[in-house]
């Protein structure tokens, strides 16, 4: 009798269910099966690395792109230590920039990421972090290329 009452109480609480329900399926998908996790060779001239952080939550995000001689992004990798939304945002960002040119990738907006993942207002900064990471990676790549041109001259 008493045991029954207790087990019912436990069932009705189910805090884990409540937590997962607040994330959109697209976020959970990227969180559980993140695309392109890993690292590229930082010293490679064709690799751009972006390293950004969000002080408000103590998150850190690394996003790298590999560009071929035609200016096309042929590979992208990321490593994010942070919340589910930050991981999903960077995972989606690597997926999107792959196959794009450097100029096209520059046009990627955090609002696109936020929309695709249906991020709530409090998590918008996660998508901004991903945009910053791409911008930082692209600018790192460009600086490397400029330096390469200079030394070639």
């Amino acid at each position: 009798m008493a045991l029954n009452a207790t087990s019912k109480l436990l069932r009705s609480a189910s805090p884990i269910k409540l937590l997962t329900a607040s994330y959109h399926p697209n976020v959970i998908d990227h969180y559980e099966n993140p695309r392109n996790v890993g690292s590229l060779d930082k010293k490679d001239d064709n690799v751009g690395t972006g390293l950004v952080g969000a002080p408000a939550c103590g998150d850190v995000m690394k996003l790298q792109i590999k560009v071929d001689d035609n200016g096309k992004i042929i590979d992208a990798k990321f490593k994010t230590f942070g919340c589910g939304s930050a991981i999903a945002s960077s995972s989606l960002a690597t997926e999107w920039v792959k196959g794009k040119t450097v100029d096209q990738a520059l046009k990627l907006k955090n609002t696109d990421i936020a929309k695709e993942l249906s991020l709530p207002p409090v998590k918008l900064h996660c998508s901004m972090l991903a945009e910053d990471a791409i911008k930082a990676a692209l600018s790192d790549y460009r600086i490397k290329q400029k330096n390469k041109d200079k030394t070639a001259e």
Partner: peptide, 22 residues
Amino acid sequence: VITENDKATDQNFLMEMMELNE
């Protein structure tokens, strides 16, 4: 206050955090 608009830009520090996390 520390807000979401604050950016951590110190590359050395971020690299250290990345490595510690790894």
